[in-house]
Structure formats: C-alpha cells, structure tokens
Write a protein that binds this DNA or RNA. Structure first.
Lengths: 198, 198
DNA sequence: ACCTGAACACCGTTCAAGT
DNA sequence: ACCTGAACACCGTTCAAGT
C-alpha cells in the first residue's frame, strides 16, 4: 500500500472507531469520511461495505473473544466457563452498539466481510457449549447456532434503553435456560424494582 | 372530519398496511403517501409520527391481544395460558416486521403514540404471569417489564432470517426459562439440524 | 495507484402557498 | 379546514476527472 493510502486507511479506522462509539455502528459513513478529512470515494475504496469497515475495526476483538473461549475451555467448570464467555461477548457487543444486527446478518451470508468472524465466534461458543453438555451442565438440545441466536437476542436487548435496569437479571434468566441444575445461576442482582407493570 | 380528509385518512391507512406488510414498519413514508395518491404533508397532518401511523394501523390488534390475555386469565392452567398468549404476541409481531423496535422504544416514552398500547400489553402479560407465579408455575423473580423484555427479544430474533429454522425451538427454550417444572415444554419441534457450527 | 467530490437516487420533516 | 409539493438537510453509492 502506498504511503498516502496507508495514512488514509489508518485515519479512517481511527475516526470510524470514534464515530461508531458515539453514534453506533449505523452511523453515517459520509460523516466518517468528512471527519477523517478524506473523500467519500476513498472510504469506499478501502472499505467497500460498512461490514468491511466493521470487520477491520473489530477484527482483533473478535480474535480475542475466540481465543478467550479456547482459554476457558481448558479451565474450571464447563458451565462457569460458558457463562464467563457469554458475559464477555455480551459486554463486547454492549460496547459496540449496533454491531449485533450486521453480525446476525453475516452469520449466513458468505459474502459479508463479517462472515468469517461470526462463524469463528459461533464455533468458539459451540465448543464451550459442547463441553458443558458433555458433563450434563447445559441443555442437550442446543447447538452453536442456537447459542448464537440467544447471544444475539441478549445483545439486542442490551441495546434497548428501557431494558437497561434489568440487563443483569435477564442475562441470568437466559443463562438459566441454557444451563441445567443451575436455574438461579449467580442471580443476586438488584435493580429490578416492583414497578413498571402499568 | 371533512369528507375529503376522511377519505385521505382511510386511504393512507390502507396503503400503509400494504407497504408495511411488504417492506416492514420502517418503510418509506414518502412511498406510502405516493402510493396513496396524497401529498406528503397530508400524511404528516394525519399521522405526525411513524408511531402514530403504526398505532392507528395496529390499535385493533393491540386491543385484541389485551382482550385475549384477559380471556386466557379465566381459562385453563396458568402456565398454559401464559404460554398460549406468548405464542400469540410473537405471531403478531412476526406478522408485522419492524414493529418491535418502536414498541420497545415506546414502552418508556410517554410521548410516543404507541406508549399506551405497549403499556396495556405489558399489563396484560403481567397479569398472566402473576397468575402463573401464584401457582408456582413461573419464576418468581420476573415482572411485567421483564416479560416484555423477553417478548421483545424473541420478537426481534424472529425477524432475523438466519434464525428462522430455530424459531419454534428457541421459543420453547425461553418459555422454559419463564416457567418452572416444565423445562422441556412442548418442545417436539424438528428443524434444528446438526450443521451450522462452522 | 490513488484521491476527490459532483451526481444520482433516495430519505424525513417543515411550511408557504394554494383551494 | 384541509391539501400540495417545493425546500432543506440529510443519506448510500458510483464514477468521471484529476494527481
């Protein structure tokens, strides 16, 4: 890559990181180009789709999450490992608002720039799930795809402002649906008041 | 309302029903006005926000769902009643793609035209939930707001094409998380193959 | 080899001008 | 009292023209 191209590429990534953090992963690409001081065509040259930009931005995080799953596979109780990883991936998506929708689209779209990352994450989760199942700690009728669905649903829910006060609680509810003999999980959260039933 | 206004109002609703069915609740309002043969300002006069249009379009369905909950309250086992109602509300949102996001926004926004409908639905679900809890058939640590969150999460998931083959299955998984002593529910669905773990 | 930004085809929303 | 559509401020995406 030519030096000026490299500079633009890096600048676009840095600005996109800021803009997406502020406004979510569906922020205006025009705005990204503008704030990067770069022509709109330059953005599209380096990142032909929004997914390509997201992939470049989040690649290292995806890799870290997959590696983390592998690390957890060799440590501690299978159900604890699965639970810990679920917490991490939900924390990740929560820190990257708007990213779960393109991830969910990408999981079955081989042409998406996010496809490989999502497939890796699904496989990482599937391995943790399989280990928990092998020891009877997780529902036997789930697979990696179902786990990915549940993660996506939780991640989307976590993005909804009205849900915020119950985020920890509902995480545990879903976790309890995945795990067996552990229906109450570590469910010692507060913040779920008695009000709110209209 | 003047006769011509009434005609435009009805025409807009009829066209919006078609357009939203085809393209989802986030379809272009310009397109609705265009296909209704009406000026864009006329649409905004009758329906100042997209939520107002949705509310007018779905009011009778919301009422029916709330009434249905009341009917179910007086019939059969509390857990069956809750489960049946959950199925109905998920079927409803599935038939109205894109409606769950504005509903989730509206639940805590008193200025939204959808607010009252959503609050009614939450209350209807809360009553069914409370009855199931009273007989020990549902997790005691849930309330109407949590149930609404779970419904929204399931509804969003149901909108994702990649999730479609597991829709029935994951409905039962979540249902099992809500109900107690019934972890496997009516979970006799097929269609969750062994593939898909990348 | 790479960059630029005008051009095109869209949006949502407002509001002056009409009937 | 109601309707219209231009106007404004945005999008995503493409591509001829430049360096």
């Amino acid at each position: 890559m030519r030096a000026d191209a490299k500079k633009n590429y890096d600048q676009l990534l840095a600005v996109a990181r800021d803009v997406f953090t502020e406004q979510g992963a569906d922020a205006s690409l025009r705005d990204v180009a503008r704030r990067a001081g770069v022509g709109l065509g330059t953005l599209y040259r380096h990142f032909p789709t929004r997914e390509a930009l997201l992939e470049a931005l989040l690649r290292s995080s995806f890799d870290a999450l997959a590696a983390r799953a592998q690390g957890l596979e060799a440590s501690g109780a299978p159900d604890d490992a699965l639970l810990a990883w679920l917490r991490e991936i939900i924390a990740f998506t929560h820190g990257h608002r708007g990213v779960i929708a393109p991830m969910m689209n990408a999981i079955e779209d081989e042409n998406s720039a996010l496809h490989a990352s999502c497939v890796s994450l699904r496989a990482a989760g599937a391995a943790l799930l399989a280990r928990a199942q092998a020891e009877g700690h997780a529902r036997a009728d789930l697979d990696g795809a179902a786990l990915f669905d549940l993660i996506a649903a939780l991640a989307w829910l976590r993005e909804q402002p009205s849900h915020a006060p119950r985020a920890d609680h509902l995480f545990n509810v879903i976790a309890s649906a995945i795990l067996v003999d552990r229906r109450r999980a570590d469910d010692s959260d507060s913040g779920r008041g008695t009000s709110g039933n209209g």
